[in-house]
Amino acid sequence: MIELQGISKSFKVAKRSPGIGQAFKALFAREHTIVHALRDVSFSIGEGEIVGYIGPNGAGKSTSIKVMSGILVPDEGSCRIMGHTPWRDRTEYVRSIGVVFGQRSQLWWDVPVLDSFELLKDIYRIREADYRSNLAMLTETLDLEPILQVPVRQLSLGQRMRCEIAASLLHGPRILFLDEPTIGLDAVSKLAVRKFIRTLNEEKGVTVILTTHDMSDIEALAGRILMIGKGTLLYDGTIEKLRSRFGTERKITVDHEPSEKAPEVPGATLLSWTGERTVLSVDTERNRMADVLSRLTGQIELIDVSVEAKPVDEMIVELYREHRI
């Protein structure tokens, strides 16, 4: 459905050292640096997948989304999406995709949400019947009924984001690009947005590509992760595979009666000790959890124990570190 082959894109950025002298110098001779936003990125995504696209700030996530949605023209490489090259037949191609940029707005600020929707209906030439049924479906699942008549400027961020997502789906696209759709949202709105994306994918078979910095988005939604750093694709696989790579380590947090000194447990590494709380890390591949716990009980009076696998966030940080990005 989506095929990227060797996509590269670089930007010329004017560079200037601070200070008045440098400012004068820049009047005559300007220095430029070339920033390689994408270097030889290739991947393919099948129909009906949800793919999480992750990477640190400035890694090239948004640039890839913009290339895939036909907004930016890459320097090199080819991209075929549903038989189109996005930037070449842009107007034809964009009919079948929906895009949400979490940090931008496509709704008209001063008019009710419904007016923006009506405009989109005309822009995409959506048939009346399709528009009615799509709008009804979106209104129900995103709970838009009470806010459709409200001018956009009076909506909260969470309400607006739900409207933005609805606006991108009115024309029934087969692919949905979401660039940080949950940025700045509270827990309730986040859950609502996630649930909606999941339903959309399962019931309508819409392919979803989403970028985010919130790993719980990825965990909740994406079967597959693409990780990009410094413009290069670094990881392409499932979360489970990532877990098995880093996931043998467990963190044990123990609340206990006050003790004189930190417990010494062979096979576990002490992470912190405060007198009443001890945090240990255990590699379950080499040591059995039962042994560690029994050794622990021999030394201190346990009150509460919790064992956690490494959070995805930390795995990602470790991946970043591994690739030095």
């Binding site: 913009k66 949605s69 036909g70 907004i71 842009r90 107007t91 034809e92 964009v94 009919r95 995709i97 895009v99 940029f101 931008r104 707005s105 496509q106 822009i123 995409y124 030439r125």
Partner: peptide
């Protein structure tokens, strides 16, 4: 100037 033109560019019209 803010880059919101991104949205205008993914509309099927000139």
């Amino acid at each position: 100037m803010s880059g919101n033109i991104a949205y205008e560019l993914c509309r099927p019209c000139g």
